[in-house]
C-alpha cells in the first residue's frame, strides 16, 4: 500500500472527491489504527509473560518461590539476586536452596550439560551442512540417471517421524558394539549420527532449491575447462551458496540444541547429558527445585538466543524455505 502524505491544508470538497480513495480511507481508519496498536501491544505483553517469569524466578531467592508470586518483584526489586546462578555454577550440592545438583562442571551439573549440548550440536550442524551440500550438488549438477527420483525420495523422507527409526537404530548401535567393539549407543557420537541422518532430508531439500538457481552453464564451462567436480564444488558452488549454507546451519543448530527425544533415547543413562535432558531429569526429581529448573532453563536458552539474534535473517530464511518454497 503506497502511503501518500496528507496535505497540510484540507482540500476543498471537489478536490477531495477527485482524490484517490486511498487518502480518505486512511483518515477513516484512524481510530481502528489506534485499536490495532493497543490490541497488538497487549498481545505482545502477554507473549512476554512466560519468558519474563522464567527470568524473574531465576533471579529471585529460591525460598520465595512457594511463598509469593514472581510478579511481586515489581514492588520489591531488592529481591533480585544472583544466588541461584552462583549455586548452580559452583556448588549446587549445598542443600541451602533445597534440591541440590552436582557443581557446575561435574557430570550432571549445568555447565557440564551446556558443554554436552555444544558437543552434540556443533558436529551435528557441521556434518549436516557439509553432507547436504554434497548430496544436493550431486542431485543438481550430476549427470546420472534417476536424480529426480532420488530428490523426491528425500522430500518424502522430510516428514518421516523419527520415532519409526529409534528402536532399530538403538539395536543397530548395540550390534555394532558386539561386531566391531564400537557401540555408539549411549555416546554423543550415536546422538550426532542420528541427528545428522534425520537433518539431511531437509538440508538436501533446502540446498537443492538454492543450487537450482545457479546457472548450469557456469558448471558446464568449468567442466569444459577441465575442472574436477570437487574443484567446482569448492570453488564455484560453495562460495555462491554461503548464505544458504548459513541458513541451514543456523536452523539445524537450533533444532539439535533443542532436541529432547533423541538425547533421551540414546543418552538416557549417561552421566553427561545435554541441557534439555538435564531439565527433563530435574523436573522428575521430587525435591523443591524450581530454582534449578528456572535457572537451568535460562542457561539453556542463552546460546540459541544469541545465535538467533545474531543470524535472525538466516534462521527465518531457512524456516521459510522449508515451509513455502
Amino acid at each position: 500500500m503506497t502511503v501518500t502524505a496528507v496535505p497540510a491544508t484540507p482540500p476543498v470538497l471537489e478536490e477531495a472527491k477527485s482524490l484517490p480513495r486511498e487518502r480518505s480511507s486512511r483518515r477513516r481508519w484512524r481510530p481502528s489504527r489506534v485499536a490495532v496498536n493497543v490490541v497488538l501491544g497487549a498481545i505482545a505483553l502477554f507473549w512476554l509473560v512466560p519468558t519474563l517469569s522464567m527470568m524473574i524466578i531465576s533471579f529471585r531467592p529460591a525460598g520465595l518461590f512457594e511463598v509469593s508470586g514472581w510478579w511481586k518483584v515489581f514492588s520489591a526489586p531488592s529481591q533480585l539476586t544472583l544466588q541461584n546462578y552462583k549455586e548452580l555454577f559452583t556448588g549446587g550440592s549445598s542443600t541451602s536452596l533445597g534440591g541440590g545438583v552436582p557443581s557446575g562442571l561435574a557430570p550432571g551439573g549445568v555447565l557440564d550439560a551446556l558443554r554436552t549440548s555444544l558437543e552434540i550440536s556443533i558436529p551435528a550442524t557441521i556434518f549436516v551442512t557439509a553432507i547436504a551440500c554434497l548430496t544436493a550438488y550431486s542431485i543438481v549438477f550430476g549427470r546420472w540417471r534417476g536424480r529426480n527420483a532420488v530428490f523426491l525420495t528425500i522430500v518424502g523422507l522430510m516428514v518421516v517421524p523419527l520415532q519409526v527409526a529409534l528402536i532399530p537404530v538403538a539395536s543397530l548401535y548395540k550390534d555394532m558394539g558386539s561386531a566391531f567393539g564400537w557401540n555408539p549407543f549411549g555416546t554423543i557420537t550415536g546422538v550426532v549420527i542420528f541427528h545428522v541422518a534425520f537433518g539431511l532430508p531437509f538440508g538436501v531439500f533446502l540446498m537443492r532449491n538454492f543450487f537450482t538457481g545457479i546457472p548450469t552453464a557456469l558448471i558446464e564451462a568449468g567442466r569444459i575447462d577441465g575442472a574436477g567436480e570437487w574443484t567446482l564444488f569448492r570453488r564455484v558452488v560453495i562460495p555462491l551458496g554461503v548464505a544458504a549454507c548459513a541458513s541451514l546451519a543456523i536452523f539445524q543448530f537450533i533444532w539439535v540444541w533443542n532436541d529432547l527425544l533423541v538425547a533421551l533415547v540414546f543418552l538416557g543413562g549417561d552421566p553427561h547429558v545435554p541441557l534439555t535432558l538435564f531439565l527433563y531429569d530435574q523436573e522428575r526429581t521430587l525435591a523443591a527445585n524450581f530454582w534449578i529448573i528456572s535457572t537451568g532453563s535460562m542457561v539453556s536458552i542463552v546460546v540459541p538466543l544469541i545465535v538467533f539474534l545474531a543470524f535472525q535473517r538466516h534462521f527465518v530464511r531457512g524456516m521459510l524455505a522449508g515451509a513455502v518454497k
Binding site: Y137, S138, I139, G142, V164, E229
Partner: peptide, 21 residues
C-alpha cells in the same frame, strides 16, 4: 565423481532412516 558426492548422504539415509523404518 558426482555420484561419489552422493555416498555419505545415501549411506546415512539408508542406514539410519530407510532401513530402520
Amino acid at each position: 565423481q558426482s555420484l561419489a558426492f552422493l555416498v555419505p548422504g545415501a549411506v546415512l539415509l539408508l542406514a539410519i532412516v530407510i532401513w530402520p523404518a
